[in-house]
Design a protein around this nucleic acid. Sequence first.
DNA 1: CTTGAATAATGAACATGTTAAGTAAATGGT
DNA 2: ACCATTTACTTAACATGTTCATTATTCAAG
Lengths: 156, 156
Amino acid sequence: MTDPEMRDGFELSETRHTLPMALLRLRELVMAEFRPILSGHGVTEQQWRVMRVLFEVEEVTASDLADRALILAPSLSRILKTLEARGFIDLGRSPGDGRRARIRLSDTGRAFIRSVSPESAAVYAKIGERIGADRLEKLLTLLDQANTALDENRTK
Amino acid sequence: MTDPEMRDGFELSETRHTLPMALLRLRELVMAEFRPILSGHGVTEQQWRVMRVLFEVEEVTASDLADRALILAPSLSRILKTLEARGFIDLGRSPGDGRRARIRLSDTGRAFIRSVSPESAAVYAKIGERIGADRLEKLLTLLDQANTALDENRTK
DNA sequence: CTTGAATAATGAACATGTTAAGTAAATGGT
DNA sequence: ACCATTTACTTAACATGTTCATTATTCAAG
């Protein structure tokens, strides 16, 4: 009920209607559906992302993995240590370049992904239904287009 | 140099095209434009969000502020302590209810927002240009619709 | 072959995200 | 008025985000 007072038009959009907030809000709502599943299986959202990527690419370096999973290198270092301790991944060094890490999903990790995937896919389907299939597709297209538009001039 | 996408369409990586990843990727690209400005003025993204909300609503409780700034209560407690120590906000207790916090932006905090706003607005405008005004508007509409769709059944 | 610069990954320090537990003040029923 | 419950906020503990520094390896002159 407490309305914001009148103020002369300073050039700032209302916080609720900015792109960063809209993206963050929707992402929080989506992850709120996934988080219980992941925590129920003892992994965090980021650990799951890392293993999902490894499930798809078979073998990558740390830099490549960081790019694909959208995780910064220092965070990834810690996560890899955790996942290795749990036996989900195998860590090594690239034969050609001693600086690069060689990261692979272990059989245990692969089995873990397979066991959780059905629940994850079910939640994703439910979210798709609530949003609407066509609307979700349009949204993903726009997100990809905006992403491309901003990524092009990134190294300005 | 740049990461080449080896796949040519029929073996697309699943992870890359999910809604959570698309939202996270675009948000990271957007915030990469804002972060230098904020860090240049000595505040984090979250501290800025909190002060932006306070700039609009004049006075709120902690719960309300947490909702509006999309920050969890424990994080907000720490952030408020930091902002108070810097003199950006004034903390008190609600006269009617001793549990509720009374949070207001100080004159110093208000002046800070005004001084940074032009840079922030300029970056936001530049982002809008790159994405395209119509495309951005459609995107914000879809985000809001998806948000509403997921928020309705949240307390199922 | 040697040395300085660049690259890949890790370590360090602090801020925030996340969940669970704890504290103090209000509320509701008796 | 009393007491259990609820509410609003805070603490605690650990994982991750973020920036900067450091180490180890490779690369590129010279």
